[in-house]
Design a protein around this nucleic acid. Structure first.
Lengths: 229, 229
DNA sequence: GAACATTATGTCAGCTACTGACATTCGGCA
DNA sequence: TGCCGAATGTCAGTAGCTGACATAATGTTC
């Protein structure tokens, strides 16, 4: 259950040879620097008002190099969340089979946030950066669009995991896909509530967890019968 | 319950004066032409391989004029769905208060698709175009991102309607927001299933309705207990 | 119907995101 | 040391998008 936070993702198939060459380490550093510089600039002066040239100049690389690391400007912004999402997926894969699919999903996010807040400072990520990024995303239409699309892609992965877990064919049984989508939607509205909730902001990751749980608790009731008693 | 399909949206606050001036009618024509031209080009040669210049040239207006009608390239593509979404919202507003929130939502989409397929040919929209567009969206990442963002915005409207319907404050009670989000998610995966389902394509709007209902039916079961019997 | 106010459109110049092609430099390795 | 491949830089170009200003079309008033 220890499951280390992946240090930071290169696009590569994780050659875990420990002794990475100077070349690899340098690439990793450049990538981390770009993410960190971008994050700082975005928060300070806004996403739209920050140019790619500016980010690149901040790390002393050419614009062309920036685009060899990130397919587009959105990607560097969302990179901070990528580790967390990978962790969530990895966590879901290892949940005990006895758990209900929904239970497994729920346990996986709370665990993700908890572990992230424990291992603060690994890579350019960290909880603080992730939380700040969520605020930025929700207030930046372009970023929100890109983030939603990425979320959808992740839902495909989650769907596959759920189907395998339960021994189902996702082409026949729509439940994996439906659960993945509904769950993702609830997480999103939780993020939205978070951005408007100053008290939760003060509570840090725990505040986020609390909000997510509150929303998940209401999923069943929201679907069921009349709301008025 | 008749509720006409809005002919086609200018950005304007619907001055229903019937006798629109020449100016207004001309603008409407230009807008419709742009949407139609864009739709045709996108389907024929793909979204990315179609330039805004090309669309504008097709309607004999300058590129600058195009951007006075649409904020960006995505908007002209998604315009075909805008009418349907407005209709859905309008429909939801008028559902009887006795219905469960979920029932009202469900009735509203099926009704939307049914009415659209009945009133084929009003405006540049029409069911055929809408269905083609859904295929295009699902196969074009950039469009998918933009579409998801628009969907999110619509969810805000839906949330407000549900809250008012049930006499709740959406800031206190999260059920409206959660239901709107979960419902939107199910609609989206339904669209996804549709794109992969050739049989449903052949059935036209009825095929889409069938898929949506199948997914909605599975929403409860997907959330509930263990899936294995 | 002439003169004026409004508004849509065209033109142009410019910024920014992004890409392909080619040259150069740097790390890995014999 | 010297060679190979990978990372980077440079440059030129395309496309989306915007502000500023001029022009033309429409609506209005007398």
């Amino acid at each position: 259950m220890a499951l280390p936070l992946t240090p930071s993702r290169t696009g590569q198939p994780a050659s875990d040879c420990r002794v990475l060459g100077l070349r690899e380490r340098k690439k990793q550093r450049t990538r981390d620097s770009l993410v960190a510089a971008a994050h700082g600039l975005f928060l300070r002066q806004g996403y739209a008002r920050t140019t790619v040239d500016e980010i690149a100049a901040n790390v002393d690389v050419s614009q062309r190099t920036f685009f060899r690391y990130f397919a587009n400007k959105e990607e560097v912004a969302l990179a901070v969340l990528a580790d967390a999402e990978d962790y969530f997926v990895e966590c879901l894969r290892r949940r005990p089979a006895e758990e209900t699919p929904l239970q497994a999903m729920r346990a996986s996010i709370t665990q993700t946030w908890q572990v992230m807040s424990r291992d603060e400072g690994s890579g350019p990520g960290g909880v603080q950066a992730a939380l700040e990024l969520i605020d930025l995303i929700e207030s930046t239409p372009m970023l929100l669009a890109a983030h939603l699309r990425r979320t959808i892609e992740q839902e495909g992965v989650v769907t596959a995991i759920l189907a395998e877990r339960e021994g189902l064919d996702p082409a026949t049984d729509v439940r994996p896909r439906v659960l993945a989508a509904a769950f993702g939607a609830v997480i999103r509205v939780s993020h939205l509530s978070w951005t408007a909730d100053t008290a939760a902001h003060a509570a840090g990751p725990d505040g986020m967890i609390a909000i997510i749980e509150r929303h998940l608790d209401q999923l069943g009731p929201a679907l069921a019968g009349p709301w008025r008693s």
